[in-house]
């Protein structure tokens, strides 16, 4: 209880709200790393997941899909901090190496959910789409993706929240972001700063959850929500 009160007092101090170590600046840094990592994740994982889910004919496609999804799931087990230190040792510190563990962590949920979402579209829906004369890409864009959208968004949300929470470790290798408050606070034994940083990260994660809830409402067809509840 005391820690939280101290943290609230910490938020009240005016020096937290300006300068290079102020909350606005740190928040921007945090969002910048996270956004970059998220964008890279989507560029890698979305097309791959959707395409693998769509191409289901033939043994080669099935085997490839299985291999990619299994290795993506395996990647979830990698220790983030170890990966960060390895990347920094190999490539030196800076934004680039910091992004590696974030992306490696975020690709699996996006990839696996996109793949599973598209694959799970009922065969007769796909059959009807093809039988009425949709081309392969029309089936994907007009039927499979809209129907798979709840799962695709869920994967993206999981990835975004993980990235935002994990981006705190950027501070470990000397970069900015909200992690600075946590790590510096621990080092200097200023626990109000540590708690304040933690609260900020949690709040950001909640905000992302909220954004995705809104996105779900806006983009998922009511018909899909209805058929999911049946």
């Amino acid at each position: 209880m005391n820690a939280i009160l101290n943290a609230l007092r910490w938020f009240g101090q005016s020096e937290q709200w300006s300068g290079p170590d102020g909350i606005p600046q740190r928040l921007l840094e945090h969002l910048w790393y996270s956004g970059l990592a998220f964008a890279i994740t989507l560029v890698i994982a979305l097309p791959l997941g959707l395409a693998l889910g769509h191409v289901r004919r033939g043994r080669a496609a099935a085997a490839l899909g299985f291999a990619v999804v299994s290795s993506a799931n395996g990647a979830r087990a990698l220790p983030t901090l170890g990966l960060l230190i390895l990347a920094v040792l190999l490539a030196g510190s800076g934004v680039g190496p910091t992004l590696v563990p974030l992306v490696v962590l975020a690709v699996p949920p996006v990839l696996v959910n996109a793949y599973t979402g598209v694959r799970q579209v009922e065969p007769q829906i796909r059959d009807a789409a093809e039988g009425m004369g949709m081309t392969g890409s029309q089936v994907l864009w007009r039927v499979e993706i809209p129907v798979a959208l709840p799962l695709v968004l869920l994967g993206m949300r999981t990835a975004a929240i993980q990235i935002v929470s994990t981006a705190t470790i950027a501070a470990y290798v000397g970069l900015g972001g909200l992690g600075r408050y946590i790590i510096d606070g621990l080092k200097r034994q200023e626990y109000d700063s540590t708690a304040g940083g933690a609260i900020l990260v949690i709040a950001l994660a909640f905000l992302i959850q909220l954004i995705f809830t809104g996105l779900h409402r806006l983009s998922v067809s009511p018909g899909v929500r209805l058929s999911a509840s049946h």
Binding site: A129, M132, G133, P146, L149, G223
Partner: peptide, 29 residues
């Protein structure tokens, strides 16, 4: 694809698109 657009296709359990309204389902072709 072109051939199929000229042939009506009805399947078991209808295979309707859950994300489209009834009118838009009918208007697919």
């Amino acid at each position: 694809a072109e051939l199929r657009r000229g042939i009506g296709y009805v399947i078991q359990q209808a295979g309707l698109f859950p994300h489209r309204t009834i009118a838009d389902n009918i208007a697919t072709v």
